[in-house]
Design a binder for these strands. Structure first.
Lengths: 178, 178
DNA sequence: TGACATAGTATCGACTCGAAACTATCAGGT
DNA sequence: ACCTGATAGTTTCGAGTCGATACTATGTCA
């Protein structure tokens, strides 16, 4: 029983508590996670394959999860105009409402000081990025932190997609983040 | 998008990566967690109802999970001699082998210094205990940290069960921990 | 000897999950 | 224009989770 084993088990238990929070709203952990991802991802990163990559799952599985969320009226399909195979999802107003309600774990974090919380965030981020890299998975960081991002007075610019970004976009998750 | 939301999402992603580690051994996250719990719990805390409490699940669900682990030959049933309803489980040698192999996330923690790791452990423990308390769940801490524990030169003594504890027992999880 | 609590199991329906097969669409080369 | 192959999503399968409910067997207390 090492220290890292202990931390791993703490993380597992916390994730279970957190995932169970959405159950009262009729969501299981996978559905909560997909909904949260869609809420945080930018408009280039809301396709089924992106959700699958983020969650470390397969397109087939995520197809089912998105179908469940769609039938519950929490997300809506947006078809691409340039690629007729491509589908994107966005939260309905009901989806946003549900999401805001399922944050049971949040109050527990108040026990930590602002400094402890930011230290916690940094440590978890380091461990996550290392694991993702060693498993060949994408980081899905926010635009601001990306190597393709160039800051502008208002918002920024993505050098990979050659597109200007509004300020709100720069806070969102992106598949292309590197 | 608050800081606590971010930390929650980091925890979810890490837990998924960690849970998936056992899949190559043919275990799903729930099975991994139950196996890890049984490996860490003391002999008074290895009954199906204890596993259910630890995992925040129901006896019915855990009954199925334990059945799967039993059929895979990773745990063995031990019937109580004093209460014929009661069943307890312990790891087989095969179970211990499998458990030792499924620790994919561990190397990522090497990125953190010893100090950062212990700080991380402390913060997570605080948040977990707060959440558990506010949800009316048991902490499942190790004997050493329990209010019923009295240290002795070799091991200790449990004032609740009025039983001496070997040194190795004092490092194990207990249902009665308070 | 009840009445009731407790330990565990079985079953149901909705869902996850990986794997594999499948459809539709797009892109490159000839 | 045509064929080939890649890509985006969906469907289906079997094993399993999960909560809820109903069930059996055993223990406890009056």
């Amino acid at each position: 029983m090492t220290d890292t084993d202990l931390v791993r088990q703490l993380i597992s238990r916390l994730a279970r508590l957190d995932g169970d929070a959405g159950r009262s709203e009729g969501l299981n952990p996978a559905q909560s996670m997909a909904l949260e991802y869609l809420a945080r991802a930018n408009k280039f990163s809301r396709q089924p394959s992106h959700v699958a990559e983020y969650m470390g799952s397969t397109r087939g599985t995520i197809s089912q999860t998105l179908k469940a969320l769609r039938e519950k009226g929490l997300i809506a399909e947006v078809r691409s105009e340039t690629d007729r195979r491509s589908v994107s999802y966005e939260l309905t107003s009901r989806g946003r409402t549900i999401l805001a309600q399922s944050n049971a774990l949040n109050s527990a974090f108040n026990e930590l000081s602002a400094k402890e919380l930011s230290q916690l965030e940094r440590s978890l981020q380091v461990v996550l990025n290392t694991s993702l890299r060693s498993n060949g998975l994408k980081p899905f960081g926010v635009c601001k932190t990306c190597t393709h991002f160039a800051p502008r007075t208002e918002g920024g610019f993505c050098n990979l997609l050659s597109l200007p970004l509004e300020r709100s976009e720069t806070e969102k998750l992106c598949v292309e983040n590197a």
